[in-house]
Simulated scan of single mutants.
Amino acid sequence: MSDSRTSPRLAVAWRAAIQIAAGRIVPAKIVNFSAAGIQIQTSVMLREKQTYPMMMEIPSHNDASARTQVVCKGTCQYTILSGNEYRAGIKCTDLPPQHQELLESWGG
């Protein structure tokens, strides 16, 4: 089976958090990352086409214990039930320019 995506995906296990409503933040796990977006795993179903404030913890290539919290917005492209949790494709926007080099080092 071929993958027709425009950007290759990198399997990762990074922490994230999504604000799903005012005062309600839920943890998430980024399971893959690419220049086009991320796929997250979370306990709540995200609404397609909804934009959420979020945070990703991205490790340094040189030192996995050195993590940078990147605050951005994410628009849900799709969501599917996978076992007991949901997986959602997220297109990230409003990424801080100071984190661009770190994201590009991972292919983003």
Score class of each variant (00 low, 15 high):
residue 80 I to Q: 11
residue 27 P to D: 07
residue 101 E to C: 06
residue 85 E to V: 10
residue 79 T to D: 04
residue 79 T to P: 00
residue 38 I to F: 02
residue 76 C to N: 03
residue 45 M to T: 07
residue 99 H to E: 14
residue 99 H to K: 05
residue 26 V to P: 05
residue 102 L to I: 09
residue 46 L to V: 09
residue 48 E to W: 02
residue 28 A to V: 03
residue 47 R to D: 14
residue 71 V to S: 09
residue 79 T to N: 03
residue 42 T to S: 13
residue 8 P to M: 06
residue 49 K to C: 09
residue 78 Y to G: 04
residue 97 P to F: 13
residue 20 I to H: 06
residue 38 I to Q: 01
residue 75 T to Y: 01
residue 64 A to P: 07
residue 43 S to Y: 06
residue 51 T to M: 09
residue 26 V to R: 04
residue 98 Q to M: 10
residue 33 F to D: 05
residue 72 C to I: 04
residue 73 K to I: 02
residue 88 A to M: 09
residue 20 I to Y: 03
residue 40 I to D: 00
residue 39 Q to K: 06
residue 96 P to M: 07
residue 34 S to V: 08
residue 28 A to C: 09
residue 33 F to E: 05
residue 101 E to L: 08
residue 88 A to P: 08
residue 15 R to A: 12
residue 41 Q to K: 09
residue 85 E to W: 01
residue 97 P to D: 10
residue 75 T to L: 02
residue 58 I to D: 01
residue 1 M to W: 10
residue 84 N to M: 08
residue 7 S to L: 05
residue 54 M to H: 08
residue 81 L to F: 07
residue 91 K to C: 08
residue 1 M to R: 12
residue 67 R to F: 03
residue 14 W to C: 10
residue 22 A to N: 12
residue 29 K to W: 03
residue 79 T to R: 00
residue 106 W to F: 10
residue 104 E to Y: 07
residue 75 T to G: 01
residue 15 R to D: 11
residue 8 P to A: 12
residue 46 L to Y: 02
residue 11 A to H: 13
residue 60 S to N: 13
residue 51 T to F: 05
residue 20 I to P: 01
residue 65 S to C: 04
residue 11 A to D: 14
residue 97 P to L: 12
residue 21 A to S: 15
residue 71 V to F: 12
residue 20 I to T: 14
residue 69 Q to Y: 06
residue 105 S to K: 08
residue 41 Q to L: 14
residue 99 H to M: 09
residue 20 I to W: 05
residue 57 E to C: 06
residue 87 R to I: 05
residue 56 M to L: 15
residue 34 S to E: 05
residue 68 T to Y: 10
